[in-house]
Design a protein around this nucleic acid. Structure first.
Lengths: 153, 153
DNA sequence: ACCAAACCAGACTACTATAGTCCAGTTTGA
DNA sequence: TCAAACTGGACTATAGTAGTCTGGTTTGGT
């Protein structure tokens, strides 16, 4: 199980924005030239982040992208959900897996496990802010995990 | 992020085995006719479980598959690792992502987050046994999550 | 007014992994 | 010796990822 490169690239773009001084916009080109990403692909990722209201765009000459909020108010869960659709897909749930619905609701204990897996990840990611990600040091992930854990009880 | 159908099918196969009386082997055909799975695909999954020493096969007439150990001694982590390769792939780690190595080790805080995500999932899955999965009721997943959490500290 | 720099958007394509199929074995109990 | 089962490898179809390509629209500066 892994996240796609969309999430990886998107996070790096967001780190670039978090590092900008006084809300100055950064252009797709600047990020791309620093990272060697594809320009058009990166644009698509930034559009997803814009539609999710995580970043805002400034069109026209001297335009670019800025964070829609302070990095401390943006958490990893919403970033992942914007770029992946969900943190963890609880399959064998009605409607998912194109109508191939699990017929074991009363037979096996799989679904509650996937449900809890999603809760665990949601809680963990929710407590990690872009500020922490961008600052790198001393992230105290243990505390985040603790919070994620407690939320399950 | 989701697990593949391999894991879903594989788990259901294991639940069938756990439900067998007195170590009587179950055949691929029996599982397939009960679930509507593809025969040859299910065989492949059972081979993976055999190579991982989670199940044992009995060849020849009246053969089939049995659990290699008691369901209480088989945990979800090893099942997932047998069928998916890993619970969560820590990318941006040297060697992964076919030699496209992340060049931000000193710039961003992404890797430790993915590392902790893997630890969190590993711990959570490790504490869930096939016995619990097959018995369905009263799984006390909260306790498993608690243990997973503690292991991070 | 115009131009260039940037974002915007949709259709298209290449590649890879998943989810299978097919077939030719080998093993074993009756 | 036969049939029921597992074994194993090569093959295929489909879907999703990771892009490309093209033609826009918006805006600041001159």
């Amino acid at each position: 199980m892994r996240f796609t490169t969309r999430t990886e690239y998107g996070l790096i773009c967001l780190i670039y924005m978090a590092h900008q001084k006084d809300g100055h916009p950064i252009t797709t080109k600047e990020i791309v030239s620093g990272e060697g990403f594809s320009l058009t692909f990166t644009e698509k990722i930034l559009q997803k982040l814009r539609l999710a209201k995580i970043v805002e765009s400034l069109q026209g000459n001297h335009g670019g992208y800025v964070l829609a909020r302070s990095p401390s108010k943006i958490n990893l869960r919403e970033i992942v959900e914007a770029l992946e659709g969900h943190t963890f897909d609880v399959f064998c749930e009605p409607k998912t897996r194109n109508d191939i619905v699990c017929n074991h609701f009363h037979l096996c204990g799989l679904k509650p496990i996937w449900r809890k897996t999603k809760d665990l990840l949601d809680g963990f990611f929710e407590d990690i802010t872009l500020e922490q990600i961008a600052s790198k040091n001393d992230m105290n992930l243990e505390k985040s995990a603790q919070v994620a854990k407690k939320a399950l009880l």
